[in-house]
Simulated scan of single mutants.
Amino acid sequence: MGKKQTEVFVANTEQQLEDVYRVRREVFVNEQGVPESIEIDDKEIDAVHFIVYVHNVPVGAGRFRMLEEVAKVERVCVLQEYRKHGVGALLMEKMEDVAKQKGVTKLSLNAQTHAEDFYKKAGYQTVSNTFYDAGILHVRMEKELKNNSCI
């Protein structure tokens, strides 16, 4: 999956938001068995949503919410057949870029333990013991964002 055929957007249109929810529903509800009442929550309106397309097909999604100068990364997912092809890494890069533009100095997330290595490769550090969320084992992770401005 080359970068040219893969595009990551901040989901601003009604269609893009529909695609975000479709991908999340497929991964979290259908694949992992998370109840939809938990997966779609009251924080959707406060979040910046992201959608990944490969050849115009929605295949990945995520969101973050601003908590002062920290952005909480949530609901990061990629459809099963598109995993291990760099889609998730591109999604995380775009989320970081947008967070930096908003003045964010730190990202935090709760990672499913099977995805902990993915986030470590993206520069996150584990900062908690394991815990359950929606019946799935997680760890809390954080990443400091460096300011790219020149002095």
Score class of each variant (00 low, 15 high):
48 V>G: 03
59 V>I: 09
42 D>N: 13
83 R>G: 01
62 G>Y: 08
40 I>D: 02
65 R>P: 04
59 V>F: 04
63 R>W: 05
149 S>T: 08
80 Q>D: 12
88 G>K: 04
43 K>I: 10
92 M>L: 02
67 L>W: 00
88 G>E: 00
75 R>G: 01
17 L>S: 01
34 V>A: 10
145 L>V: 06
58 P>M: 02
91 L>R: 01
20 V>E: 01
113 T>N: 12
50 F>H: 08
134 A>C: 15
81 E>M: 12
134 A>H: 13
139 V>Y: 10
48 V>I: 13
7 E>W: 04
129 N>C: 11
34 V>T: 10
50 F>R: 01
69 E>F: 07
8 V>M: 04
123 G>F: 03
79 L>N: 05
115 A>L: 10
38 I>T: 12
124 Y>V: 05
98 V>Y: 03
60 G>P: 03
38 I>Q: 15
117 D>Y: 12
125 Q>C: 06
48 V>H: 06
29 V>Y: 13
141 M>Q: 07
137 L>V: 11
69 E>G: 04
105 T>L: 06
16 Q>F: 05
147 N>Q: 07
87 V>Q: 06
32 Q>T: 09
90 L>W: 01
6 T>S: 11
127 V>C: 08
47 A>D: 02
96 E>C: 08
54 V>E: 08
12 N>S: 14
33 G>N: 07
41 D>N: 11
39 E>K: 07
111 A>D: 11
107 L>D: 03
131 F>I: 10
47 A>S: 10
102 K>I: 01
85 H>L: 15
42 D>T: 07
89 A>R: 13
85 H>D: 11
3 K>G: 13
14 E>F: 10
8 V>Y: 04
48 V>E: 02
54 V>Y: 14
24 R>Q: 02
65 R>K: 14
7 E>V: 14
65 R>Y: 03
39 E>V: 07
100 K>Q: 05
134 A>R: 12
109 L>W: 02
127 V>E: 12
94 K>F: 03
3 K>R: 13
3 K>M: 12
